[in-house]
Design a protein around this nucleic acid. Structure first.
Lengths: 330, 330
DNA sequence: TTGTATGCGTTATCAG
DNA sequence: CTGATAACGCATACAA
């Protein structure tokens, strides 16, 4: 018995038609208990399991979700992938991991996903041009969702952390702690999520009379870029003119900044410079860094996404509230 | 035009048969230049692209590789996933990310992968019982590979870093540096890779007269477990009896240990305690930790794996040499 | 309750 | 070089 058993094989062996065999595997179909047992027994014996490929071809439902990722430098992505994969599998779906990079852009990924008939495409925190998404919206193609970023496209639902609420809470906390001269470290430019956070950060400080916030542009979301950016700033800025608290666009940047401030410049944290991160990375919260960070409600976000994927809730953009974890860095 | 265009649609529009349409998309097939151009033009116009699902059903080749992961606590996995996904995509394949956990064990993953007709299953550093793999070896089912772990099963090729060579090099380096009292921090038990490293670590020290090596069992591969293990050891062991160098089973453990030693116990690294990691995680090499670490040759490993997947080389276990990066922690 | 015809969109093979 | 027939393995609709 070399090749895989098919429904036909089971039918022959069981002395039934292959359609009856099929019925044994579709819940709630009209089949006698006797036949079902017979079929299942023979199937077990032959090691038969329905071929999902063939099934999908007919039903147009593959249970596959393409997950597009372009930034693998952020360990937080791994935690997100873990949760997302688990959540999909709990609903009989599975994640197709698609690496977006120089040799494989969004357009190609969309096309490929479409050819594979995936049920949906999830952009997991990838940078994208809105017009490149336009093409993905072909009628009949897979639905597109943006996770952990805000989409400005009206037809593409995004599931993200409420930047306004989070920044309101962060600034409130910082003001209460007595900080007065905030700075903002940005990562990759042109990412809507970053822009949103920066915008609201500025907005809420403005309500406290702070009109000008130095931007430390790291240019990318990795430790080294963050280190370089802060190093540059601290080297160029006399101590008395420096910011007293640095809001970082994410935890990776915050960790890089934390290290440079403390190890290279001997600054005490938070006395000389307070630091705030964003995401809620596991390691950021450890005593090693003790980073105050706004945790994205990733469990809720993924639950919301899956609900939309399964059609249990309407597919529209949602902003979910996260939680500020105050630690020793502020 | 709501539904997706099929070859039939293109054929009708182009005034050719659907088989000729097909030929235009299969390289090196017998078709006149005239027809090919005509077909491609019409296809472009209708937005037709071959349905890979239907193709796979017939060819038995899906181009999908199930990648099983059970440990998402290690950021190194993310870098590995990135490289693996990119390498697969460069060969017209794609990774199906499968989360192995309490609710989804290897057996279920194997079955599901089989039902989806994936071309191969890759165990990415997952812990497994050899007998659970046995079931996966059904004739006709997808090929199984183990990446970054050693498989003891003769029929399952594993692509891994040469534990013996690496430990030989590490111990040689440590001896040259003058260290004399090594310790070993292990992670999850019963993982062949860990056992291999530990075994060879002991073996090469034995050649230098060291017969007993304290084992600090973290029990899992995460920062906290490493911290707890070293904290326990340092609390229980008087300074003069302590090890002078700690070999950690991977970088995550090493980072956790580094932090506890330095921050909680005020030990100077490497003067009071040297630390060695394993993997070659990006962050481990940064000044923040400056960890001496043995880098797995992940690029080579993945290249070897892909060669096997594509049938360009025989599928058999290989041990690849990595590279020791000496930094300030030793 | 069970069996039959038909279709999903391709590809392999063969006839012309 | 092109068109036609069969098959991949399953699911839906309908008939018995």
């Amino acid at each position: 018995m070399n090749r895989r058993a098919t429904a036909e094989d089971v039918a022959t062996e069981a002395g039934l038609s292959r359609w009856t065999v099929n019925r044994a595997f579709v819940p709630g179909s009209n089949i006698s208990e006797r036949s079902r047992e017979r079929v299942l027994a023979v199937a077990e014996h032959l090691g038969y399991h329905p071929n999902l490929l063939a099934r999908s071809l007919h039903t147009k439902v593959t249970g596959q979700v393409a997950v597009l990722v372009d930034d693998f430098a952020n360990p937080y992505k791994l935690a997100t992938l873990e949760k997302l994969a688990a959540a999909l599998q709990a609903e009989e779906m599975v994640a197709m991991l698609v690496h977006i990079g120089q040799h494989y852009d969004h357009a190609r990924a969309f096309l490929h996903a479409d050819q594979r008939q995936v049920d949906a495409i999830v952009l997991l925190g990838t940078g994208f041009q809105d017009d490149s998404l336009q093409q993905a919206l072909r009628v009949g193609g897979p639905a597109v969702y943006v996770l952990a970023r805000e989409s400005t496209h009206p037809d593409i639902p995004s599931i993200s952390c409420d930047a306004s609420a989070s920044m309101a809470e962060i600034v409130k906390h910082l003001v209460a702690r007595g900080y007065q001269r905030p700075g903002y470290m940005s990562g990759a430019r042109a990412l809507s999520s970053g822009l949103g956070r920066q915008k609201y950060h500025a907005k809420y400080w403005r309500q406290h009379g702070v009109r000008k916030i130095p931007e430390l542009a790291a240019g990318a979301y990795d430790y080294r870029s963050a280190e370089a950016a802060l190093r540059r700033y601290l080297s160029e800025t006399p101590a008395e003119q420096r910011i007293d608290v640095l809001m970082c666009e994410n935890d990776v940047l915050a960790i890089g900044a934390h290290d440079v401030a403390q190890r290279e410049f001997g600054l005490r944290i938070p006395e000389d410079l307070a630091i705030v991160g964003y995401d809620g990375m596991d390691i950021a919260g450890m005593p090693m860094f003790g980073l105050t960070s706004y945790a994205q409600p990733m469990d809720d976000m993924i639950a919301a996404l899956v609900d939309m994927l399964k059609g249990r809730s309407a597919s529209r953009s949602v902003l979910l509230p996260g939680q500020l974890a105050v630690r020793k860095s502020t």
